[in-house]
Each structure stands twice: as structure tokens, then as C-alpha cells.
């Protein structure tokens, strides 16, 4: 993030200074206030509300009638923590998050390296590579569903007619395969994001160190491992953080591909099901709150570990 500039024009001495300061502060708050209000109303208040709801045995009717004021209880948390389905969802979420994060960043890094040096059509091809990320998730998941369908999907048709598979594969509706398919889809959808940022980081590297390494006889792999990769680590660390948080909270992709069936029920989908299926607002809120705590702890550990790394890099 670019540093916000601190330098200010020096106004005249005495009373005018504090007057100008006061005006500046007032103007600043006035200009920022609308944005802050919208974000607070739509995001911060609901989060607080969710935490409150998680301590209540509330259904839609109760919330509509009593708002925030229902009896407080710890039952939701007890239910969440003792439900095997919750722990299964947590394990699934962790598997899914780690696999998509590692996968999408690895593919993104390979892509960024392949696109590093100029070649014909580099610019248009790079633009095309970002399509999975910008295209509407509803459209791309639908295309994947059709392509992977056992009856009329092109992948199974190719597999059975050309590759000689005995049976069509239930990519999205049978237990271990479904989670794998969702992970592959998400690597496909999100590698462009890593590609974009790592590409930008690569163009920012100075060529001189690499040229020096080449002069000293480093092979291309050594050059990558000892010179290029260390310089990319800060960007990779940031991407890991960002992708982990996004993947941990992911809803659309999983819900649209499998609806959470066949061992793909990640936490967000479980929350959604608790809300719409059994309309347990309290239980859903407690699940969401517990997941947020898990994510917070994981982030704290990650930041602590990488802090040491950051110190060393300095």
C-alpha cells in the first residue's frame, strides 16, 4: 500500500494555525463520514448483532418481534461444539482453504514466471488469463457443472469414449471426488489473482542482482531459488494471508457447485443451511462466531510466525 503522505503546507503562526487545523479536521470527518456510516451500518453493526444473536435461542419470529432483546444463553455454543457435523465442516474448511491457497498461488507463480519475459501476444494472453477471476461465478460454476456431468458432460464423454474409462465419474456428487473437484475449480478461479500480483512483483524486481548471479555461474533454477523467490516472499506471504481468509469464508463457489453435498460442506455453507433449512439464527450465528475465532487465532499465529521472517528480511 502506498504510504499516505504526511507533509502539510505550513500555515501562518498563532491563532490561524489552530483554526485551519480545526477546519481541516472537520472537513476530513465530513468527507469520510458517509462511507464510514455505510460500512458501519451494513458490516460492523451486523457483525456485532451476530455475536449478540449467538448468545440467544432465537428464531426469525423472535428476532422480528424482540430485536436484540432475547434471553441470553450459552446453549448455542454448547450445541455447536458438541455437534460432529460442525467439526467435520471445520476439517473440510481447513482442507479446502489450505489446498486452494497453496494450489492457486503455486499455479499463479508458475504462470507469472512463464509470462515474465516478453513474447508475441503476451499482453492479450495475460488479459485472457484473468478471465476466470473476473467472470461471474454463477456462469463459470454452471459451465463446470455441465462439463463434468456424468450424462451429457464433455469431460465424461471424453473420458469414456477416448480415454477408456469404464464408468463416467460423479465429479460433483460422490464423496471424496467432489471436494477435490471444488478445490480444482477454485484453483482455476483464483490462480489469476496470484498471477496478477506476482506478475506485478516480478516486474518490480531489479534485474541487476540476477545478472550478477548469472555472471557468477548460477543455473536458471539456482537463480530462481536463491535470487528471485526470496524477493517474492513478502508478496507470497501477503497472498497466502489474503487467500486463506477469503477461502475460509468462501460460500458461493461451494454452494453453487455442490450445494454442500458429498462431503463438501464448508463452514459458510453450514451456516447458510442452519439459517435457511432449520432457521436456527442463534445456532448459525454461534457457528459463524466460532469459525471467526478459529480464523482469528490462525491469523494471529501466522502473523507471529511471519513477523520473525519479516524482521530477518529487513
Amino acid at each position: 500500500m502506498a504510504r499516505v503522505r504526511e507533509r502539510r503546507p505550513r500555515p501562518g503562526p498563532g491563532v490561524t494555525t489552530s483554526k485551519l487545523r480545526g477546519r481541516e479536521s472537520r472537513d476530513g470527518i465530513t468527507l469520510v463520514a458517509p462511507v464510514v456510516l455505510v460500512v458501519a451500518a451494513i458490516i460492523v453493526v451486523p457483525i456485532v448483532w451476530t455475536v449478540v444473536l449467538s448468545f440467544q435461542d432465537a428464531r426469525y419470529v423472535d428476532v422480528a418481534r424482540n430485536g436484540l432483546f432475547n434471553e441470553l444463553t450459552l446453549d448455542n455454543y454448547a450445541d455447536v461444539l458438541t455437534a460432529p457435523a460442525f467439526w467435520r465442516a471445520l476439517v473440510t474448511t481447513v482442507q479446502y482453504s489450505v489446498a486452494t491457497t497453496v494450489g492457486s498461488i503455486t499455479v499463479g507463480l508458475v504462470a507469472a514466471l512463464a509470462f515474465r519475459d516478453r513474447f508475441r501476444f503476451r499482453a492479450p494472453l495475460r488479459a485472457v488469463m484473468l478471465l476466470p477471476y473476473v467472470a461471474p461465478v454463477v456462469a463459470t460454476t454452471f459451465v463446470w457443472q455441465v462439463a463434468l456431468n456424468p450424462q451429457y458432460g464433455v469431460v465424461n464423454a471424453f473420458g469414456t469414449q477416448v480415454l477408456g474409462w469404464e464408468h463416467p465419474v460423479n465429479f460433483l456428487s460422490a464423496a471424496p471426488t467432489a471436494l477435490g473437484t471444488v478445490i480444482v475449480y477454485d484453483i482455476w478461479r483464483y490462480f489469476p489473482f496470484a498471477f496478477l500480483f506476482l506478475g506485478a512483483a516480478l516486474t518490480g524486481l531489479s534485474k541487476e542482482i540476477e545478472e550478477a548471479a548469472v555472471v557468477d555461474g548460477a543455473t536458471p533454477l539456482q537463480k530462481f531459488w536463491f535470487v528471485v523467490l526470496p524477493q517474492l516472499l513478502p508478496t507470497i506471504a501477503l497472498l497466502v494471508l489474503f487467500r486463506m481468509v477469503m477461502a475460509f469464508n468462501e460460500f458461493d463457489d461451494v454452494y453453487l457447485l455442490t450445494g454442500g453435498a458429498a462431503g463438501t460442506q464448508v463452514a459458510s455453507v453450514r451456516v447458510f443451511e442452519q439459517l435457511t433449512g432449520s432457521s436456527e439464527i442463534g445456532g448459525a450465528s454461534a457457528t459463524a462466531a466460532v469459525m471467526a475465532v478459529f480464523l482469528g487465532v490462525a491469523l494471529a499465529i501466522y502473523l507471529r510466525l511471519t513477523a520473525r521472517q519479516r524482521e530477518e528480511n529487513r
Partner: peptide, 30 residues
């Protein structure tokens, strides 16, 4: 501009991404 709470605003915006949309969606809906 320099004003009280400037850096807090930036943090507020970052914090938004820590929470799944699904948990804000329900209270917003209600």
C-alpha cells in the same frame, strides 16, 4: 487532510474482509 480517526478508518476497512459475507448477510436482511 489530517483529522481525528484517519488511521482507524483504514483499519475498519481492512477488518471488513475478516468476516464471511454470510454472517453479515443475515442481520442485514432482517
Amino acid at each position: 487532510l489530517r483529522f481525528a480517526g484517519r488511521s482507524q478508518v483504514s483499519w475498519l476497512f481492512l477488518a471488513v474482509y475478516l468476516f464471511p459475507t454470510i454472517i453479515i448477510a443475515v442481520p442485514v436482511f432482517v
